[in-house]
Design a protein around this nucleic acid. Structure first.
Lengths: 216, 216
DNA sequence: TAGATTGTTAATCGATTAACAATC
DNA sequence: TAGATTGTTAATCGATTAACAATC
């Protein structure tokens, strides 16, 4: 497991995975017009303990006011900055199948600063992408990457092609990969980060829980 | 956190989440024609320790032969049975947007026994689903569920509609929900299991790791 | 039989929770 | 000031790893 640091403190994977949930909860509070919050309220929203909330915020650098709680807008801004959501990211998507095109069309990511600039596939005829997006043949991948700044590559290919695509992306200097292919991707290159979305793993966990549910 | 039991032993969430990965690794081995395996090989495939592999198998009920290792086909069958992948599951999908339709068309789930029987939306014109699938108006949801056995409901709706849909599904007796809407769904009904796929959480974790990567 | 590798217990490590001093 | 709630350390709990006896 890799180690990430903020202000000299090591941040564990367990904490990192909760940060987006804090972010979303705070966004919801802001949307509802709530300006002040405390660790108990946040804990209830995430279904964790208030102690864990304070411990987590302590780990990433305290943000509260003792005896008062947390200013929603301040805390939201701080957590956004920790996650890097105050920046903009240029993305490309490899694979113009249903999932690739669904991702390219989804506006939620763009709203958070993740902008899809191009979609690549072996077949481009009869497929459509949104405004400001290019639909390119996969053969143009290296050419595109040599001329266009790209922060994140999204892999939405068939299982079989995935490893070859990963190699090409890493060789082209891509440093962040978001993988939707049903493989647990990893790379020895320590400068590359990969996040896998394993839909079938989640489905199998659901099946297990259905079958082994107690006190139902 | 709920507790699941197999042969009198409590199985932790940490173990449950690894079971689908064992399953996939063993499927790959079987596909390659490998008939025998040991804990070290499996550990290397999942990038965990051999000790953890043996401890996990011990928790779900031993499957190996001392001094020999594991028979791939036996172990695969046992883990499939533990996950419940030896059964068939009838699914419906709520939401015929890009993600809902992508899921309805994806053959990978069907191959594992998860069969999508119907897709529901407020708009059904101009949309198409596969053979053996119905495309129905969301108003027909309760009517459909009262006449058709359904194991799993997949939620692929807009954020705003999601809670209302959850309530209707639970009221209709659905016991398993696979949620793709960008909300962390939960229910007080202990007989209902929910698995959330949070794509943006995964993307935010990727952003964090990009920004905080050390020893790059 | 000797060698290999599991099954299982014990030790270690890390994450969560509890407690309370600090302080707004 | 008194009350509230954080920041921070210590205690607890659970998960991972190590060790090795069992046994194929």
């Amino acid at each position: 497991m890799d180690i990430y640091v903020n202000h000299d403190k090591v941040i564990s994977d367990a904490v990192i995975k909760r940060l987006p949930r804090y972010y979303r909860a705070l966004k919801d509070l802001e949307m509802e017009g709530v300006s002040k919050v405390n660790s108990t309220v946040i804990a209830d929203m995430l279904r964790i303990t208030a102690s864990q909330v304070r411990q987590d915020f302590y780990t990433v650098g305290g943000h509260g006011i003792q005896g008062y709680g947390y200013e929603v807008s301040t805390l939201l801004g701080d957590i956004a900055a920790i996650l890097g959501l105050d920046k903009r990211y240029d993305m490309i998507i490899i694979g113009a199948g249903r999932i690739g095109l669904a991702l390219s069309a989804y506006k939620g990511f763009r709203h958070e600063g993740f902008v899809c600039k191009a979609v690549f596939d072996v077949v481009t005829e009869g497929k459509h992408v949104g405004d400001g997006q290019q639909l390119l043949h996969i053969d143009c991948l290296e050419e595109y990457l040599s001329h266009n700044h790209t922060d994140i590559a999204v892999i939405a290919t068939q299982k079989e092609e995935t490893h070859a695509i990963l190699d090409r992306l890493v060789a082209s200097g891509i440093k962040a990969i978001w993988n939707f292919a049903p493989i647990d991707l990893a790379t020895d290159d320590k400068s590359v980060v990969i996040e896998n979305i394993n839909m079938s793993e989640s489905l199998f966990v659901l099946a297990f829980k259905m079958n082994n549910k107690l006190n139902g």
